[in-house]
Design a protein around this nucleic acid. Structure first.
Lengths: 131, 131
DNA sequence: CGGCATCCCCGATGATACTG
DNA sequence: CAGTATCATCGGGGATGCCG
């Protein structure tokens, strides 16, 4: 007999601050450079391997495949192999993935809005120390 | 003569997908296991080192200090050393940090809401392969 | 109490070349 | 075109001990 996490006891409220709660795992999945960007990219619509590489700009083939696989494993991304030759594989967001992408887009916009502030702060901080 | 990024040319729109845009840097700053949690934690109010350790549960002293320093460097976190003995150092969110924490809390809630779905997908995925 | 310094290890990430 | 395999590396991250 095994414990089915999908109907885990509600004895404790899901809490990302609880290291044993698998919501932490969900968070760490996102807390990866490429995962965030890939999901954001796929929000624009289904994409193929090559298209994703171009969109992300500087991801290696290896990391792209690896991250996509991990996202697919967790049900955030759907992989569709059209089984043609030459190969044609399309990646798209699952419903859960789409619910996540909305939040991530807010994050993207935050970064695009405030990066200058961060840059300035960093410069000030560094200048202050190296004296 | 150096280039001042704080008034960088507006020839291009800030784009997280542009590897050369420092908004990418901002994003990667967040894309770290502890940075996200620390900022979320500080949203609850100023905290001391020990309190943060307790709140996060399983962070090492080293990573906590290190991440806090990085966040301070980028102007997201404010470090106030009360210069007493024994030491009393308080960390709090800067205005920019607070603007970020709002988004991150949405992310936290997303994780706490959907982690079961991810768990289930992962289990299915793994079961399907090891046959 | 906070936190720096040091040692050390492993996994994340990348570059390159090869395959169906 | 998509993906795997292999090798090399670099830095994240933990453990420990010392300091103001």
């Amino acid at each position: 007999m095994t414990i089915d996490l999908t109907e885990a006891p509600t004895t404790s409220i899901p809490d990302v601050f609880d290291p044993t709660c698998s919501s932490r795992h969900a968070l760490e999945l996102i807390a990866s450079k490429w995962a965030m960007l890939i999901i954001s990219a796929l929000e624009e619509g289904p994409m193929r391997n090559a298209a994703l590489m171009r969109r992300l700009g500087d991801v290696s083939q290896k990391m792209l495949t690896q991250t996509l696989k991990e996202l697919e494993r967790n049900g955030l991304v759907i992989r569709e192999d059209k089984k043609t030759v030459p190969p044609h594989v399309e990646y798209s967001l699952s419903p859960v993935g789409r619910s996540l992408s909305e939040t991530l887009l807010v994050l993207d916009r935050w970064a695009e809005t405030h990066f200058a502030t961060l840059d300035a702060a960093r410069e000030r901080y560094d200048a202050e120390r190296e004296r």
